[in-house]
Amino acid sequence: MLDQSQLQDYLAPISKWLLNHDNLYTDLQIGNMIDAYEEEHWPDLDNADIVLIGVNEERGAGRKTPEMHAPDLVREAFYKLYHWHQDVKLADLGNLLPGNALTDAYAALSSIVGALIDAGKTVLVLGGSHDLTYAQYKAYANKQYIIELTVADALIDLHEDTPARAEKFLMDLFTEQPNYIRHYNHIGFQSYFVQPKMLETLDKLRFDCYRLGKLRENLDEIEPVLRNSDMLSFDVCAIRHADAPANVLSPNGFTGEEACAISRYAGMSGQMSSFGIYGYKPTQDQYGLTAMQMAQMLWYFVDGRAIKNKEAMLHDKDAFLEFHIAFSDIHTKFLKSKKTGRWWMQLPDKSYIPCAYNDYLLASNNEIPERWLRSQERAI
């Protein structure tokens, strides 16, 4: 059971009345279905599957005064959507109280996320600046959980010569000792913003980076990556400006639909226990479209979680189609779920990794799938 007093010390309640401008939510709107921390009411976290936290913290991006009420603007849009999956229980813990220093905010967020993960909850973080990814990661590191993490960002925040934590937090993630990162994936980077040597560095660490253009050719390729990830951090700047006006970095990026598909894939993952969306700036958000985009991403994450709950375990042979393949003198096996259509590929040690249909096609044509090769490289 989660300790209410321990969590409550870090949090400020919200008001559904204010979020909905003194109107009632209809029966199946999320605002009516979600159990939120309000004055005089603490949510029933024991029965919750997904727990939402707002974090209005931007000192890591060099802004001493955060954008006002950024998480609440996303909530306002999210609460108006309709909840289609009543078997997925939602709770909202309100907003993180500002600490005296940035390190206080990191410590508080990691403590809350860690406690929720330990209780078997999936955590949604509505950020502030992208460096809060570090606090999201520390929730696992503080408990010595070795994880795979994925970041969606047009940039690779690996700069050393900058005072802004939001521009160099990946350096902290990769160099901190002891380190609990089993594997790192970076999705949606835009090459013209990235120093080539950064990619060389990540490749030497056997981390995987997926260029925006490559992913947009076949977005399904990213589903196995997210299926194997414990946490996802998504920067709004990965979405093109037309679909997320608060992104003033680039006119290019994922479409709104693609961002929602990525969120749905994350929700479908049986491994994923935290998902943070960062970088929202309300003062740059025309007509509130970015807040609505983020709200719909949250909706699709919940939608994915409903699908995840229906997936069978790999040892349930009746729930999968089995394909025996030989490529380059290697004999292996592919499994396809009858329920969700997702694929798994067997490695030489007889373990299985998530894969895509294209990996099966390559193996069928006597080609070694790159996903198989990369996995074997990391095993050495």
Rank of each mutant, 00 (worst) to 15 (best):
S15D: 09
G114D: 06
A12T: 08
A164K: 10
L373Q: 13
L347H: 04
Y265E: 06
K138M: 12
P224H: 05
S274H: 04
R374C: 12
L155A: 00
D303V: 03
E370Y: 07
E39V: 07
I117N: 07
V194R: 00
Q8H: 12
P369H: 11
N309Y: 04
L314Y: 10
P178K: 13
F275K: 03
D318L: 10
K143L: 15
H331Y: 04
R240E: 13
P224S: 07
Y140A: 14
K350R: 12
M345H: 03
D131E: 12
E38D: 09
K204D: 13
L298N: 05
H85F: 13
V88E: 09
I262F: 10
K317W: 06
T103C: 09
E223T: 04
G341I: 04
F301K: 00
D208K: 08
P354T: 03
N247E: 13
L109Q: 15
L170T: 06
G128C: 01
Q8A: 11
A119L: 05
P282W: 08
L24P: 03
T283N: 15
K317D: 14
A242M: 14
A326Q: 10
N179V: 07
Q6C: 05
L232C: 01
L173P: 08
N366E: 10
R227K: 09
I368T: 13
N247W: 06
I380G: 13
D87M: 14
P369R: 07
A139Y: 05
Y82T: 15
A246V: 03
D22S: 07
W84G: 08
Q190P: 00
S250D: 15
A61H: 09
H331L: 06
F275C: 04
S111C: 13
D46I: 10
A326C: 08
V194P: 00
I146N: 14
A291M: 02
M294V: 03
F275V: 02
G279P: 10
H315I: 15
A107G: 05
F234P: 00
T133I: 05
Y180W: 14
L215T: 04
D9F: 10
L7C: 03
R378Q: 09
L90R: 01
K338E: 10
K197A: 15
S5F: 14
M292Q: 00
A266W: 08
V123C: 12
W344T: 02
D72T: 01
G213V: 01
S269I: 14
A107E: 12
A108E: 05
A12F: 02
P224M: 07
D161V: 06
V194D: 00
N47P: 06
S269Y: 15
I53P: 02
T162Y: 03
Q8M: 11
D303W: 08
A115M: 11
R342L: 14
K350I: 07
F193P: 01
S337D: 03
R63Q: 11
